[in-house]
Write a protein that binds this DNA or RNA. Structure first.
Lengths: 383, 383
DNA sequence: AGCTAGGCTGAATCCTTGC
DNA sequence: AGCAAGGATTCAGCCTAGC
């Protein structure tokens, strides 16, 4: 049974600390972007003064040469100086310093979010554990529309990782369980979030070009803030960029502080936040990502044993035959090979073919389309 | 049209090393589970002798005992941090040691897989980078049916993370791109894999209870091995448990070596692997045929009369033109010459060009890429 | 107005072989 | 070792132009 009670933790705190906070809040540079290096900038903030830190630090991508798409066009990569570090040791030192400052300015019941990719996230995660942060979840941002791997050399890098951490094992933190469940159609919000990358209207431009190479989608920050802060909380972003954190904070009624070295980014961010409108309740629903229809590849059924490699598939009239191979491809007795769709099309001389309905399996005398197996698989694996 | 041609990298290696490998392979304890501590066990293996390591190490041996002891007094932050450091340090030392041994026994073009959760994966990832491994992808195993978070205190922990790494920045590695694309219905395989957890028939029992607390699904190993090893490759699993790695290796025609301390797990694993059935040769062929794609030079098509010298080639929009010369080179009306690839790139001002898809031939009013001719040639000349 | 075709782009550690 | 040349390689979403 669903219990409609907000489960946000109430942070118990000694009286004296609460009084300090009131004094401190007046001194905080709310709604402002601090200039210069973020470590220096954070040093100007009082200790235990912010409720949440969201950080999108440089990833230290270490890209090689140029990369072109198969059509010859050039990939506009992240080549900015701010992403260049001499070595892992240099990157680690930088990471330790900004994380230590973030820890100092966080309240005892505050929490930290960091986003990164495999290039940097393991180092960041280990260091924040070393500093005493207590990881609460790692969240996977599954990109609905990632850039493909153009050369066919690896798996498509289709996600980024966020770490959410509290101040320590025993520290309290804010988690708006009920809000998340509502946002997720009455299912618990999982640790994998499917969201599109930032593009289209949302992507900020400057002189026709993208204003920042790695602008994050507002939907991502929206979910982060809705889940782990309360209205009126102070959110600090040490790598403010073009101000996604500030814009979403304003929309959701949170206070924000940014740090940003590059004056161009600061200008773009301030303009953008100026235009951001606090969100009315009804717009909340439109922010939800549409529930993705579950896709199942034929190969998954083979991998998971629902269809055995070596199994014989036929068309409905059992005239055409093919056997299933370990990679999910099919092969006819004549040696023609292809995917369930491609081979089906080839055999019929058709431009295309829905392999799921074309190919059949015989089971106890009955012949059934392989889509029936997919349906069974879905039934068995859906929560 | 779907062409199921394997693109497995052929690893070029000096002759002497190849000879050494043959000697070494005979000495390897293939199909056996080494007893005792995995670090010690791995020390008994020769260097540069295995093609892939799959490791499912224990999660951080927690912190639990010390931090949870009810000593009544207030645990201050310093002691807290010290305990953590001590504990993490122990785990890190263990991790560094087994990873170093794994690195030693791996061939120069081998690769490493490690699976973990947020408790340990960040430490493992940072350490393997420090040891010189080069991360190729981080893979998210998105569980189709995870355990819910009963207390409603965090996001449902619905995934685990795998790291796939090569031996170094410049090292080669095996990636069966074509196989993965086939397995995923003709779309590039992404870094997020949706697979059910291990349950039902597949879950091994011992006296009614589950035989191992963290048994991994065979589908996960199936994809890992299909993607990054070739038939006959040697796979080492230092944390063998109940032998999922061995069972899948046997099914897919790979050799395996395991290390496992607990005799009960070893017993269960051996029984299980004994019962596993290898896929028959024909089911494995399509995915394992490095030589399946005989290379055809454009010049061959000209020599053999499939494309006549003097023929007019154009781009898809018929804006650029070139004529075919007897040696397979092209020449534009303006006198520019080059190969199908080189000239295509030059005319577009592109850094590179696939001449097979860029250049087209007109035949009975239809315009077709010259690759279509190559396909016809292949069909006609295939044994 | 609506619809389609084509173009553009996104945190990317993105080729292989032979001389 | 470095260089030159052969040749294999992309997915989803949004925008604009054109009908």
């Amino acid at each position: 049974m669903v219990q409609v009670v907000e489960k946000t933790r109430v942070r118990a705190r000694p009286l004296r600390q609460a009084r300090d906070e009131r004094v401190v809040a007046k001194d905080l540079p709310l709604g402002r972007i601090l200039e210069g290096d973020c470590i220096e900038a954070m040093r100007s903030l009082p200790s235990a003064s912010v409720d949440m830190v969201f950080a999108d630090p440089p990833y230290n991508l270490q890209l090689g040469g140029d990369l072109n798409r198969p059509d010859g066009s050039h990939v506009d990569a992240v080549t900015n100086d701010w992403d260049k570090f001499d070595s892992f040791a240099t990157y680690d030192k930088f990471t330790r310093e900004w994380l230590a400052e973030a820890r100092r300015v966080l309240k005892p019941n505050g929490s930290l979010w960091v986003i990164g990719s495999y290039h940097n996230i393991f180092r960041v995660g280990a260091i924040l554990q070393d500093l005493g942060f207590w990881i609460l979840n790692d969240i996977v941002w599954r990109k609905a529309n990632p850039m493909p791997n153009f050369k066919g050399t690896r798996f498509t890098n289709a996600h980024e990782t966020l770490i959410w951490a509290g101040m320590g094992e025993k520290a309290k933190y804010t988690f708006n369980y009920r809000t998340m469940k509502t946002l997720n159609d009455e299912l618990q919000m999982r640790s994998d979030w499917v969201l599109p990358i930032c593009s289209g209207q949302e992507r900020l431009k400057r002189d026709g070009a993208k204003a920042h190479p790695t602008q994050k989608p507002e939907a991502l920050l929206y979910r982060v803030m809705l889940a782990t802060t309360n209205k009126g909380d102070v959110v600090l972003d040490p790598f403010f960029g073009t101000g996604t954190t500030g814009a979403v904070a304003k929309r959701l009624g949170r206070e924000w502080i940014g740090c940003e070295r590059e004056s161009v980014y600061r200008e773009v961010a301030l303009e953008r936040i100026e235009m951001a409108l606090p969100l009315d309740e009804s717009a909340l629903t439109t922010m939800q990502s549409p529930k993705a229809a579950p896709k199942v590849a034929f190969g998954t059924l083979v991998e998971t044993g629902w269809i055995a490699p070596g199994a014989l598939l036929t068309d409905k009239k059992r005239k055409m035959k093919a056997t299933v191979h370990a990679d999910g491809s099919l092969r006819t007795p004549a040696g023609e090979t292809g995917s369930i769709h491609g081979l089906g099309a080839k055999l019929q001389g058709a431009p295309s073919c829905n392999g799921w309905s074309f190919w059949h399996l015989e089971h106890e005398g009955e012949i059934k389309p392989i889509d029936a197996v997919r349906q069974l698989y879905l039934l068995a694996t859906e929560p």
